[in-house]
């Protein structure tokens, strides 16, 4: 009986996170539009897009792996989200945080992309493998500073359990990792720029200007699933960063406020800076952010 209540709670939690992520993407569209001095689409535009894509007829078939690609992607997003506490101390929003730890969450961040790569490769379009190659390479490079930051905070808190990490940061702003381990936070925030794929690192995912890479053959409901996942995944990443570095949240408004501010960090940088080419962004991640990450590990381990 207990497990069913848990499932219902997790479903509610996923629904809230997805809607929140969709609205967040809509707000970002609006902010970008205002920076360009446009009016911009309504905030609920991503929701309309998803309804539209699900209302399309799907007539293509590229084999079973092609159908599984978006499902894997969605599983990656859900897995990232489900194994961490969204609101510290809340029953509904604690998800399955008792079952998994930070390494599992990091695995799920990569898992979706890999599944997507398998599925999109089946599409047979030559641009899909190209997009996969770019996306996975960029993913590997920004995972490096992020992993170093995670190692650093694992040394700092002597645990990989996210709930324990959040609990250790309670009791005042100065207990946040942001102030106790600033180098790790800097490295992780730079890798967040790559994770969110906003402007300096958005060439792997530029849906309106160039052939868009992996999802090029995806249509209708597949695209709808991918967009839903993008919203869920965005909020999952933000919640992860909030938990690890910004002291977690004890109620829903605080959670929204904190994740919104973290997201705005990458949005403002994205609105102000032009794009890197893929190889430039790989080099960028492998230089200074990686050095900062290594430095944070050394500082926390030996000082």
């Amino acid at each position: 009986m207990d497990i069913f209540i848990k499932i219902i709670y997790a479903a509610i939690s996923i629904l809230v996170a997805t809607l929140y992520g969709l609205i967040l993407i809509g707000i970002v569209h609006k902010i970008y539009a205002r920076v360009h001095r446009r009016i911009g689409p309504p905030v609920w535009q991503p929701i309309l897009d998803i309804i539209q894509t699900h209302g399309r007829k799907v007539a293509t078939s590229h084999g079973i792996m092609f159908f599984l690609g978006p499902v894997f992607r969605m599983a990656g997003g859900m897995g990232t989200y489900l194994f961490m506490p969204v609101i510290f101390g809340s029953v509904v929003f604690s998800n399955y945080s008792m079952a998994g730890d930070l390494l599992l969450v990091m695995y799920f961040i990569f898992f979706g992309q890999l599944g997507m790569a398998l599925g999109a490769g089946e599409g047979g379009h030559p641009y899909s493998p190209l997009g996969i190659a770019r996306g996975l390479s960029q993913m590997s490079t920004f995972e490096l500073p992020f992993s170093l930051a995670v190692i650093s905070i694992a040394i700092q808190y002597q645990t990989l359990n996210i709930t324990t990490i959040v609990a250790a940061q309670q009791g005042g702003m100065l207990n946040w990792t942001l102030f106790t381990n600033p180098l790790a936070v800097i490295a992780a925030m730079i890798s967040l720029l790559g994770m969110n794929m906003h402007s300096p690192f958005s060439l792997v995912l530029a849906p309106q200007e160039i052939p868009i890479g992996p999802p090029i053959e995806m249509n209708g409901s597949f695209l709808g699933i991918l967009q839903t996942n993008r919203a869920l995944f965005a909020s999952a990443k933000l919640v992860l960063f909030m938990n690890l570095f910004f002291g977690g949240a004890t109620n829903l408004p605080i959670m929204m406020l904190k994740t919104f501010s973290i997201y705005m960090f990458s949005v403002f940088i994205g609105a102000a800076f032009p794009r890197f080419r893929p190889e430039q962004s790989f080099r960028f991640f492998l230089r200074i952010p990686t050095l900062i990450g290594i430095l944070s590990v050394i500082v926390i381990a030996y000082l």
Partner: peptide, 21 residues
């Protein structure tokens, strides 16, 4: 672009015929 801004009506470009309508 900024002058006509069709995106405010939900009109966006898509690079592939699979996704455009």
């Amino acid at each position: 672009t900024a002058r006509f801004d069709a995106f405010r009506y939900g009109i966006a470009g898509r690079p592939t015929p699979r996704q455009a309508n």
